[in-house]
Amino acid sequence: MENVLRPIYQEKASQPNTLGVLIYEKHQDQSPVTDNFDVILLIVSRNSDDEWFVKHYEFENKTAAMHIVDEDLLNEWIRTSGYRKVIDWLINGKIVFDRNEYLSNLKEKLREFPEHNRKLKKAIEFAKLIRAYRECKDLFHSKHYLDANSLMIRSLHYLARVTVLEKGFHPEITVWNQVKRIDPEVYKLYEELMESNEPTDKRISLMLLASDFAIHSRAEQGAEHLLDIMKEKDEPWSFSELKVHPETQHYTLDLSILLEYLVERKIIDIELVETKGKNIYHRKYTVKED
């Protein structure tokens, strides 16, 4: 297959702004990692006019998708799991062109998975987990059981991704296969939800209790990225200060609900600051001292 695609990628490899080219082949008949294409051709470039260009091909009864991605966008995807498939492509794909060992070094960095990147990804997924869990709880109490069930599946998915990140791995598209190997207890929660013969309301009620414990036990580690930011200064933070901090931009939409959860768990303290209005106070936040 590489020989057939060589004329396509060789043209790109000859361009000075092309940093590397790799090929990722489909391993199963149905592959969400490749959007069911037989092969992915990933070309990384620098200073591209188009930050992400995609073209589809067909040859010898097979299909291929070529993705030309600007280096800055690729790094953003890696930091935030913005396009999860690309991690799998980079780790497991075959390098066919590599300018100054760019892709080789990137592969090694992904295997090492620097701590700061792990903390950021955990915070993104943990904040989404809190939102999905709270929305599930609200729907359950409103007796919208089918919608609550959908949110419970989603919250367990975020929990699975947090669990994988805790172990130092990048979450894959088939995240439950990873969880089954590395954290059987979390996998059992998913198994019980999907295979239980209990009525929907009873099943969700039990899952809410189990999930609450699983989330609570991960709160400090899941929110470590945010807590580290808040420890940067001794003074309390206003929400607006945290919201515009460059390091929180990847989970700013879920920042408010994450803060409230950490306040409830007494991980973060509130300080009230007087305003001009009578009995009205500004809320400021600080990490609770051990």
Rank of each mutant, 00 (worst) to 15 (best):
M1G: 07
E2C: 10
N3C: 07
L5G: 04
R6Q: 13
I8D: 06
Y9D: 11
E11W: 06
K12H: 15
S14D: 06
S14R: 15
G20T: 10
V21A: 08
V21W: 04
I23F: 09
Y24L: 10
E25T: 14
E25A: 12
H27D: 12
D29I: 12
Q30E: 14
I43Y: 01
N47G: 05
S48D: 15
D49L: 13
W52P: 04
E60N: 04
A64Q: 08
M66V: 14
L73F: 08
N75C: 02
W77K: 08
R79W: 10
R79Y: 09
R84C: 09
R84A: 13
D88Y: 08
N92L: 07
I95N: 10
V96T: 09
F97S: 11
L103I: 14
L106I: 06
P114I: 03
L120Q: 11
Y133E: 05
Y133L: 05
E135A: 12
F140W: 14
H141G: 07
H141T: 13
L146N: 06
D147E: 09
M152D: 00
R154L: 08
L156K: 00
L159I: 02
T163C: 04
V164C: 00
V164N: 00
E166W: 00
H170R: 07
P171W: 12
N177M: 01
Q178K: 00
K180W: 00
R181W: 00
D183L: 00
P184E: 00
E185L: 11
K188A: 12
L189R: 01
E191A: 02
E195Q: 09
S196Q: 04
E198F: 08
R203Q: 05
I204A: 03
M207Y: 06
L208Y: 05
D212N: 09
F213H: 10
S217M: 13
Q221G: 06
H225Q: 01
H225V: 03
H225D: 07
L226R: 02
E232N: 13
P236Q: 06
W237D: 08
F239A: 08
S240M: 12
L242E: 02
K243N: 14
H245Y: 04
P246Y: 02
E247A: 10
E247S: 11
L253S: 14
D254M: 02
L255P: 11
S256C: 06
E260V: 03
E260N: 14
L262Q: 08
L262P: 08
V263W: 07
V263H: 06
R265P: 04
K266M: 09
E271A: 14
L272F: 12
T275A: 06
I280H: 02
R283D: 02
Y285W: 11
Y285R: 07
T286M: 13
V287A: 04
K288M: 12
K288P: 02
K288H: 15
E289G: 07
